[in-house]
Design a binder for these strands. Structure first.
Lengths: 140, 140
DNA sequence: GTGCTTGCAAACGTTTTGCAGACTC
DNA sequence: GAGTCTGCAAAACGTTTGCAAGCAC
């Protein structure tokens, strides 16, 4: 957290209260949070911080490699610290996201690299499908 | 093409010129086309057809199973006939889409099903990454 | 004539941007 | 004081919707 602020300063950025509060929000609940959710958390302490500031700061933190965003299907992107990045299976029916360990993708990653020279990045976009529950015909 | 129009009629739909032209556009160039591109093609012959009509007709054709749409990263969704559905590798840097044969995903699909009961659908959302060219450091 | 379909315009949700003022260093 | 950062409002983007008129059947 302080390391990140130091990194910001190193890159010519200023340490402002909105940046500090945003980082707190990210460190405090390391799940998948949309920009709007993060804004709410931040605004609980400083109601004047605008959503556009959140977006601008998230963008900057992403440039510094501290934060990544993923697209879990339709709807808003979710942001989280880059340390805990992982791939997701997201159910098209109920929206539930399951975290998928990287080793599941080694065969696919190898095949894509060998046959197409393509290095897959399964973290940025989720893999969609249907979860066990919804496949049984349950209500989403 | 006439089969599809018959199918539309079977489901209580009417055969209109916008539907006919949209289907022509889809059959003529079977690539990945955004709603806007399809609208342009249609509007070349009938300039009054609105974009919203294209969206409504694509939705209806999707309900009938004739058309599917995929999300190839950021930007607009792309539509194509469902016959030729396949998964895509899309380069995050240059946007190039490579069609990936389904067999590449059998290992992953089996693992997801066995371990999570999750049935993956690799066609609706592309898998992102970096293509051979961009990995070499070439200009996107 | 019934009722599906259309064009238009306006709304939607998410994200980006332009600007003048406020802040960090 | 230089240069970054901010709030606000407005725009951008792809897509959806409400409505009255128009068309297929």
């Amino acid at each position: 957290m302080e390391d990140v602020l130091a990194l910001v300063r190193e890159h010519g950025g200023r340490v402002t209260s909105s940046r500090r509060l945003l980082l707190e929000a990210l460190f405090d609940s390391p799940g998948h949070r949309t920009a709007e959710e993060l804004a709410e958390t931040v605004q609980a302490q400083a109601p004047d911080i605008a959503l556009s500031t959140i977006y601008r700061n998230l963008e900057e933190l992403e440039k510094l490699g501290v934060v990544v965003h993923s697209h879990l299907g339709h709807g808003p992107a979710t942001y989280h610290l880059s340390e805990g990045a992982h791939c997701h299976f997201v159910c098209q029916d109920c929206g539930t996201a399951v975290e998928a360990p990287d080793e599941l993708f080694t065969t696919l990653a190898d095949a894509a690299r060998d046959r197409y020279g393509f290095e897959i990045d399964t973290r940025h976009f989720a893999i969609l499908g249907r979860c066990a529950n919804c496949r049984k015909g349950n209500e989403p």
